[in-house]
Design a protein around this nucleic acid. Structure first.
Lengths: 210, 210
DNA sequence: TCCGTCATCCCCCAAAAGTGCTATTGATAG
DNA sequence: CTATCAATAGCACTTTTGGGGGATGACGGA
């Protein structure tokens, strides 16, 4: 039996949802609210297993809502339910740990499906959303920007990032400090930076290391 | 009519797939191979619209395969199809631009579905895969880890990351170098690091700045 | 009011880093 | 065979950094 809590500011829609879900034999709607202002208390009291969460609500919206819920009750499944489909909000919800993301044009049948799905550990998304999530991965792929650093230079840079001094680096590789110096000079030149701090920042931002 | 190309080293499975897909009125299997060694040529000659791609194959596997295909023919949909479900490989495929990811335990019906889905711009994933993709997002979420840095200290650290020297920072804020020094000392202590490079790396890794 | 924190400033001093040169060796590519 | 390049090393010199002190005024909470 799924215990469902609904956050949706449009009363008519909220009522429709309640009706829809109550019509299912294995679903129980434990509550419905128009904003997330008291979401923590409400979840504590009503102990839902799945939350249907609208994004755009007066007062605290669904993005703050999912954050709060997931921070305090990570075991509760949160299913975002919204008309919005901009990447900004989508990513914000996903980062906050939303378990699924439905667009409001989703059919009632699919909503039921999604609830079953999320409750059994899945992550329901409309194909459209899934596509955009994958798109993000591609975008996140960092250009294998080639600075032309030699293998040795990469090793030296790596230790520099770890906070090692020239002396320590020299010792680690059993080479002279002067050599480390030389490598660093070349590294700085290739990276177009003037000191270690900048090089470290640039290297990490380019995802040369992680 | 979907033009389908199959990469799968298990011949029996490959034949089953061909049979299955050929049984559909709107699908045409244009070819099937046991590895990706000549994937570029093959795609060029057979002009598929959708590729079913196994990951583990002798010679060039599916990960190299999807990379090649997506680099040369970004418009062709690639559907990974594998027994492997480790995060490593999954992410590698997604980053390379795979359009969907199916586990081999997926039912024939779902495979048909997935092909239709991917061809219409969706991103079919098993619920299990979708869950893990979302999981990745959560992990990537930055924890607002609190080092207890004061506002001023944050400003100083920010400039340090930009590669500014103490002197430049002092000038930027119209304060003395000694003050910058003091701030940095406090910053290093709070961050438990011993020098600027380490501080820069730690700050960026903690996503204190971006 | 007193205590803690923040931001500011100062001194000293040693260690580390950065700059500009040169130079040798071995491997590799043309 | 030569030219290039990676890796090694050195030296001289300046600037920057880090660690150890200590001090002041302002502000805010207990």
């Amino acid at each position: 039996m799924h215990q469902i809590l609904i956050y949706e500011d449009n009363e008519r829609l909220r009522n429709s949802l309640e009706l829809l879900l109550k019509g299912m034999p294995n679903m129980n709607v434990v509550g419905g609210f128009g904003n997330c202002d008291k979401v923590i208390e409400q979840v504590k009291n009503l102990v839902p297993t799945v939350i249907l969460m609208d994004i755009d609500m007066p007062g605290e919206g669904g993005i703050i809502g999912v954050e709060k819920v997931k921070r305090h009750f990570p075991e509760v499944f949160v299913l975002m339910f919204t008309v919005f489909d901009d990447d900004e909000r989508l990513m914000a919800c996903l980062r906050s740990g939303a378990n699924g993301y439905l667009l409001k044009k989703t059919s009632p049948l699919q909503i039921i499906d999604a609830i079953e799905n999320v409750a059994s550990g899945g992550a329901p998304m409309t194909p459209e959303i899934a596509r955009r999530v994958l798109e993000t991965f591609k975008v996140e792929r960092k250009i294998p920007s080639d600075l032309g650093l030699t293998p040795r230079e990469m090793q030296v840079l790596e230790l520099l990032i770890k906070g090692h001094t020239y002396k320590m680096i020299a010792h680690d590789f059993s080479i002279s400090v002067e050599t480390v110096r030389s490598h660093l000079k070349n590294i700085y030149e290739k990276m177009h930076v003037n000191n270690g701090n900048e090089a470290v920042a640039k290297a990490l931002r380019m995802r040369l290391f992680e």
